[in-house]
Amino acid sequence: MKNTTTIQLGNNGPIVSRLGLGCMRMSSIWGGPTPDENEAIATIHEALDSGINFLNTGDFYGAGHNEMLIGKAIKNRRDEAFISVKFGAIFHNGQWLGLDLRPMAMKNFINYSLTRLGIETIDLYQPCRMDGSVPVEDIIGTVADLIKEGKVRHIGVSEINADQLRQANSVYPISALEIGYSLADRQIERDLLPVAKELGLGIIAFANTAEGLLTGDLTAPLEANDHRNHFSRFQGDNLKQNLERVEVLKQLAKAKGCTPTQLAIAWVKEQGEQVMPLVSMSRRSRLPENLAAMDIAFTTEELNTLNTTFAIDAIVGGTYLQR
């Protein structure tokens, strides 16, 4: 795998790059502008050249635009890419409407995904979350049927609880859990992460910088049009208190000669050999910094400082990641 280390998704699952490329930001987010498509494709190509083969998307990212973009990028390079697709979310005019996890809908979703991606098989297929509207066994059982049909290779899950994870794995072996995980969002360490490790799953950890909180670039208050103003973590005194903790991260990063973002990614990487940081990028200029983060090592004292400063629930206020 060229210049990157690897991770195995599941006890008998596929070997993929230890750093994953999240492609969501290559399409319009929450009704915003669509980034430059040529730059996005070039970013995917450079990621593949660097050994990052794990490409993560959702059929609802940019209303299908994201899958079509990836399809263009991997044309003639299909064997170099491992494609992870989430499904189930329904949006209209940029507004969240809910989930559709009915087996009939899933069988419809995957055919559109395969067409947009221009491939015959999706490597990892996963419901974006589960809300109890459809039994877990029906959802996972349907994906298992898609494996038999040759349309899917491996099953993943995302944004679920520990009981649902056990139930899903009892229906068909789950290869990976995709979940938000960072210094600022450690709630999964209470029950979900231990279960995932017990079952031998790969952990695909997104939101490593907690929606930008851990980049060291935020100041209070946010701009009035910033979508993060909707979440209490980024409001008023909450944001001021949270940024005081981020100062510790900034000071440690400065002492180590790296950026706070790199340190945040590296911390995720340090949480176990089965944990993959999934980093969203839309520009090639971000690749060197994020790749270098995978080489950062910590002393015991440094890890203790971070784990104490960013203990579970130390960051005040909620976000969409709160469970």
Rank of each mutant, 00 (worst) to 15 (best):
residue 161 N to V: 07
residue 220 A to P: 01
residue 159 E to H: 06
residue 148 K to N: 09
residue 217 D to V: 08
residue 197 K to D: 14
residue 127 P to Y: 09
residue 191 D to G: 05
residue 119 I to R: 02
residue 143 V to R: 00
residue 123 D to I: 13
residue 225 N to K: 09
residue 125 Y to N: 06
residue 143 V to N: 02
residue 163 D to I: 15
residue 127 P to K: 07
residue 225 N to C: 06
residue 160 I to P: 03
residue 174 I to F: 06
residue 147 I to V: 15
residue 202 G to W: 08
residue 139 I to D: 15
residue 144 A to E: 12
residue 117 L to R: 05
residue 142 T to M: 11
residue 132 G to F: 11
residue 184 A to H: 02
residue 168 A to C: 10
residue 227 H to N: 10
residue 115 T to K: 15
residue 160 I to T: 04
residue 136 V to A: 14
residue 208 N to S: 15
residue 110 I to C: 05
residue 146 L to C: 03
residue 202 G to A: 05
residue 177 L to Q: 03
residue 175 S to A: 15
residue 122 I to K: 02
residue 201 L to P: 00
residue 165 L to H: 01
residue 124 L to A: 09
residue 158 S to V: 07
residue 177 L to H: 04
residue 152 V to I: 12
residue 183 L to M: 13
residue 200 G to T: 05
residue 230 H to T: 14
residue 216 G to L: 10
residue 184 A to N: 01
residue 178 E to V: 07
residue 233 R to K: 13
residue 121 T to E: 12
residue 189 E to P: 10
residue 131 D to F: 07
residue 233 R to I: 07
residue 181 Y to Q: 08
residue 120 E to V: 08
residue 221 P to D: 14
residue 150 G to S: 02
residue 166 R to T: 10
residue 113 S to W: 11
residue 167 Q to E: 15
residue 142 T to D: 11
residue 193 L to S: 07
residue 118 G to H: 09
residue 173 P to R: 01
residue 137 E to Y: 12
residue 129 R to V: 03
residue 229 N to L: 10
residue 165 L to I: 04
residue 125 Y to S: 07
residue 154 H to C: 12
residue 131 D to T: 04
residue 193 L to R: 01
residue 120 E to Q: 13
residue 205 A to W: 09
residue 193 L to H: 06
residue 206 F to L: 07
residue 186 R to G: 09
residue 227 H to A: 12
